[in-house]
Design a protein around this nucleic acid. Structure first.
Length: 257
DNA sequence: CTAGGGTTAATA
DNA sequence: TATTAACCCTAG
């Protein structure tokens, strides 16, 4: 019977791209469940996201590459519930990356978008927002920053490494819940106390520089991912990617030490 | 739940 | 007719 194949709109496609750039390929359910993306993807299912992403991507040549000039359409298919913008969501790393992929030297100005305000405020605000009396776990902190800043996976790894590095160095105090580690449910939930707030400020500055380098690293990762599909050599690519990340973050680690 | 394959509708 | 894009089904 009536099956008018609803075409994807710009909002939906953009939301999908953003969701993938945020969480990464896969996790379609998470993207669909996300309140921010659910506004546009509320009528789409996780399978639809995957299918659409399959068409939108593909490696660069061959198939996929769905037309990019086709919006106008009707948009807002089912009387969507007033589209509001509760979240600031101003910076778009993926957008910058995409632009940079074509011409990086011309889009250097967008760099300010990645680092719009002070860096110390980043973690400070995260702690304030989380409002944790004992402190916030490292996961929640980076998660908050990730949501506010839309960082890429490359940066995510660097941030995590940085925080862990500080713990090892002794700058941060790792406080356990109490006696005995209870159950092995968590992969190492480290709750930081007040010391984090102090060290976070210093760490934030490093993060600022990290973001800048992460931007460059992201391009390298993107290239590596492309090669991965062509060569399908995970092992070689893994080392290649690792070298690039290490090379880009090598300077940062030195600063941290 | 995700990945892949196959089918159907619309288009060049 | 061939190709693309959405939709649906199945396997892991």
């Amino acid at each position: 019977m009536g099956n008018p194949k609803q075409k994807w709109t710009k909002e939906e496609e953009e939301a999908l791209r953003k969701g993938v750039a945020k969480h990464g390929t896969g996790k379609w359910k998470d993207i669909q469940r996300d309140p921010e993306f659910n506004k546009f993807l509320f009528s789409r299912s996780n399978i639809d996201l995957k299918d659409k992403w399959r068409n939108v991507t593909g490696g660069g040549s061959g198939q996929g590459q769905r037309d990019k000039s086709r919006a106008k359409t009707k948009a807002l298919v089912e009387a969507a519930p007033s589209i509001q913008a509760p979240v600031p969501n101003a910076s778009s790393v993926d957008e910058v990356m995409a632009e940079a992929a074509v011409d990086a030297s011309a889009k250097v100005v967008d760099e300010t978008k990645i680092v719009p305000r002070h860096d110390d405020d980043l973690i400070s605000e995260a702690l304030s927002n989380l409002n944790d009396p004992k402190g916030s776990e490292v996961g929640a902190i980076f998660n908050y920053i990730e949501k506010c800043h839309e960082v890429s996976q490359s940066f995510r790894r660097q941030l995590r490494t940085r925080l862990k590095r500080l713990v090892v160095l002794g700058k941060l105090e790792e406080e356990h819940e109490d006696t005995r580690p209870r159950a092995p449910q968590t992969t190492g939930v480290a709750i930081f106390g007040e010391t984090l707030d102090d060290a976070a400020i210093a760490c934030a500055y490093r993060i600022a520089e990290a973001e800048n380098k992460a931007f460059i690293a992201a391009e390298a990762v993107k290239e590596a991912e492309r090669l991965a599909k062509m060569a399908e050599d995970t092992e070689s690519i893994y080392q290649f990617t690792r070298e690039i990340l290490e090379r880009c973050s090598g300077d940062e680690i030195t600063l941290l030490a």
